[in-house]
Each structure stands twice: as structure tokens, then as C-alpha cells.
Design a binder for these strands. Structure first.
Lengths: 128, 128
DNA sequence: TAAGATTGACTGCTCAATCTTG
DNA sequence: CAAGATTGAGCAGTCAATCTTA
């Protein structure tokens, strides 16, 4: 999935997951810590990640006014265009590499098992 | 699983998989390319890996006499002691993090799905 | 020319330390 | 002191280039 995204849209799977979260939120903006939680990432990993995505012009950082420790990550126009273009291809990749080889039943079961395992690990991650 | 192995036995999960393969082979020795294939690793990744394991005293490199392009990786005594000590704990980790949270049926299904997906990717890997 | 294996540069993740504000 | 977030060092994996022998 990662390689497909890199080849076709010049973003990584980790980038993709950030872009999805932001694109689904009001004003395309989220607090760093919420973004970290939703993507099952540590804060430091997310911080490095957003650095790279900023250099690539996909996101912006903005200060938070009500809590001055906080930072927002905001989707840029280029970020939005990228996720809109990449999403259908990514869905195809998932279908091709997972759904088609496993079949619908095992595919659904596989997804549930992944979630169960993740919950079992505490949902949380180191560094947090 | 990786963190458990690092904490308890100072080896990574990747190290563990190499040690298992070697320990199960006659004379505790394998050709690099066969080892790469069995562990679903690229040759270059395996080469770096064996470098690190060599520094840690877990394995040795030995020249191959019948094919002088070839190299063997050989388990050291320390490597053998390490895998013997780590294996039961690793089995416990798998039970604790996977079997117990998924249950026997989903656990078995999950393993099969992982294998199916890997086969679907060609079994092989880049660099090869 | 291809196969076995290695190397070095680059990217990404983890961990621990740090800085700032609540 | 806690929480939000960032930073830098160090380790692991990828890719392309290289070297040697078949």
C-alpha cells in the first residue's frame, strides 16, 4: 500500500493517514495531540511527520489561541488536492492486495482482528 | 513482540527470526540467500542484519567452498543460548498479545490471512 | 551476462531530553 | 509539577550501485 502511494502520488501511507484525518475534520484542522491519537502515532513521530509534510507543502502549522501550548495542523490546498486524487487509487490498492486475495469474509475478520490487537496493546503508544 | 524481546533478551524480533531459522537447520548454518528467502527479507536487509548480529556475537560468517560467491551464516554458542532462552518467553508474548485477545479461532484465521497476503505480494521482495 | 552478496546514502521511527504554558 | 509539543541522536529498512565468481 505504501509503495503504491509513493509511486502514484508521491506520498507515504503515513502521510495518507494524516491527510484523511484532516480532510474529515471541520476546517481541515486538528490539534497535534488529537491527530496523534487518531493515527495511533506517538507525539514525536507525528511531529517529525508533520515537519516532512510541511516541507512537501501538504500541511501548515498554526498556533492555538485558547491554549497557547497547543498547535493545529491544517491542510493546505495542495494537501486537499493530493488526498482527493490519492483516495480512489488507495481504495483500489486495498481491494487488490487485501480484499481480492482474502475474500470478503476473511477480509472483514482480518480488519476486526487488527483492531482487537491494537486495543489490546492499550491503544496508546510509547513516548505518550 | 519486538519490545518484549528487547527488554527480556536484548534481541529484536528480526534477530529472533534469524536465530530460529539457523537453530532449526543442520549444523546451525544457512546460505545467506536461503536465509533471506525464509525470513521474507531482502538480501541487503539480511546483510545489514547479520552485520549487527555479528557485532552482538550471535552469528558468524563463513565462506562457502563449493560456490565461492556464497556465504554461510552460522549460529555461535551465544546465539544458541540466546534463542533457547528467548523462545519460551516469545511464545508467551504471542499467547498474551494475540491468542488471548483474539481467541483460538480468530487467531488461527488471522495467521492464515497474513500468509495469504504475503503470498499475494509475490512472496518475494524488492532488492531481490 | 547473471547470481550471490555487500555497501553507502537516505528516509523514518523510537527514545529520552527539553521547552513552554496550564 | 502536568500537559502539549518539539528536538536530536541513534537504529533499522529501502534502494541503487558495486564487486566477485559462475
Amino acid at each position: 500500500l505504501n509503495r503504491d502511494l509513493i509511486e502514484r502520488h508521491d506520498i507515504t501511507l503515513a502521510d495518507y493517514e494524516i491527510l484523511v484525518q484532516l480532510s474529515e475534520h471541520p476546517e481541515h484542522r486538528m490539534r497535534m495531540s488529537e491527530l496523534a491519537e487518531r493515527t495511533m502515532s506517538s507525539r514525536s513521530r507525528l511531529s517529525h511527520q508533520v515537519d516532512r509534510m510541511h516541507k512537501a507543502g501538504l500541511v501548515l502549522r498554526e498556533e492555538c489561541e485558547d491554549d497557547r501550548r497547543g498547535t493545529y495542523a491544517v491542510l493546505t490546498e495542495h494537501g486537499w488536492d493530493t488526498i482527493v486524487a490519492a483516495a480512489p487509487d488507495h481504495v483500489d490498492s486495498v481491494r487488490h492486495h487485501l480484499l481480492d486475495v482474502l475474500g470478503p469474509a476473511a477480509f472483514a475478520q482480518f480488519g476486526e482482528s487488527c483492531e482487537t490487537i491494537a486495543r489490546g496493546l492499550g491503544g496508546g503508544r510509547a513516548d505518550v
